[in-house]
Nucleic acid binder design. Structure first.
Lengths: 215, 215
DNA sequence: CGAGCATGTAACCAATGGTAACATGAGTCA
DNA sequence: TGACTCATGTTACCATTGGTTACATGCTCG
């Protein structure tokens, strides 16, 4: 994250765009929702709120940029982690939720937008939608590879993928919204989440193929 | 849902509180987020926006009331469905996600607030928090009963509960945010979700107890 | 019937997202 | 070097929003 405040002598900020994204993510992570005001944000960056419109068409566009950055970064981390893990399909599959959850802890502000914010269909979110699709495609390919290798049970891959995406996304979402205390003592929620996701994947792996077949 | 517009002759609306909640839920369901303006809402109810403050302390309080209503209704439906299903713990467990997903389709507007909206900790949301806790308690009790009956594998119940809550919540959340097309052809997403949740529960049931034990 | 209280209205406020016209200064090329 | 230019920032402005306050209305019940 770049420095938030610029020196008061300089007229041009230098990299206001990224500074605003960083500050916004901080605030979202702290408050749990994109509550911030463009004016607050701009002031914290040492700039007038009107200056933000040189970099983002609207407040929504700033959020969309954060989401797009998040999914691109996630995809990059996932791909790198898979490469580091070698060719085994199962290891390549398990590394995905691991990376996902680790990134969530690294950048909770971005995740709030990625998971919790309603995206309108207009072009503002087009970038984010595309970036998200890439990340999902990775899961889909890897899951299919596991099926081909006989590691995951046969059956409709969409169901298996939905199940895996569901647990991961669901637990992440619960944690982000602070709803995890209701199910655990919240003592070490992060460890519980990681282990639960892992156990679920293993349960799916060892499950009866009949479960996943279409009627 | 009560009628949106009152007759212009009458000064008092009659049941403005519920009318506003109903209209708000409609709008949330339609737009996918609580985008509405208090003034729009009030106008649609045939009333000045200031009138809403006779029934809700703030815009946020209206959302909180919807969430609280939603969780109370959900809990009631779950309890009723369990009662109708008889004493078998496994049947009583499976009926919970069924009811959950069915209610989501009935009242997507309420679910958007229940699942997708960040709840601040102040007293505005106290009711909703309490109602939510009751619904979660039902899942927890039923899951523990299944473990005692030897139906669910032994191990840390928090993990099993987290896993089940995770899939259900995760898939519901994906569907609400319109992100389900990425995993399925979105042809009959609702059926896919129901069957995937069911398959997941069965997979957990038949899984190796070792998966759910603490290290 | 009349009093009181719940409910609605009108007028107002500060703050917000967004726009437009103007100011500044860094990079480029003669 | 000096001037042109364009990206970037500022000032001043706007309509709209959530929220408050003082006043109006009319249902309810002694």
């Amino acid at each position: 994250m770049p420095a938030a405040r610029r020196k008061p002598t300089e007229y041009h900020h230098g990299n206001l765009r990224e500074a605003l994204m960083g500050l916004a993510m901080q605030r979202i992570a702290a408050r749990g929702a994109p509550d911030f005001t463009l004016r607050e944000l701009a002031a914290e960056a040492g700039v007038t709120h009107a200056a933000t419109y040189r970099h983002f068409a609207s407040r929504e566009a700033l959020l969309a940029a954060i989401a797009a950055w998040g999914y691109r970064e996630l995809h990059a981390r996932e791909a790198a982690a898979q490469a580091a893990r070698g060719p085994d399909p199962w290891a390549r599959l398990l590394v995905l939720p691991e990376t996902y959850l680790a990134f969530m802890l690294d950048a909770p502000g971005a995740f709030h937008i990625m998971l919790g914010h309603r995206w309108t269909d207009d072009e503002t979110w087009a970038d984010a939608v595309a970036a998200r699709a890439e990340s999902y495609a990775l899961l889909e390919e890897t899951a299919r590879a596991c099926q081909r290798a006989g590691i995951l049970p046969d059956g409709n891959p969409a169901r298996l993928i939905a199940a895996m995406l569901g647990v991961t996304h669901g637990l992440a979402s619960l944690w982000l919204n602070g709803q995890f205390g209701v199910v655990a003592g919240a003592s070490d929620a992060k460890a519980l989440i990681r282990e639960t996701v892992c156990a679920s994947f293993e349960a799916f792996r060892a499950s009866d193929p009949v479960l996943w077949r279409d009627a």
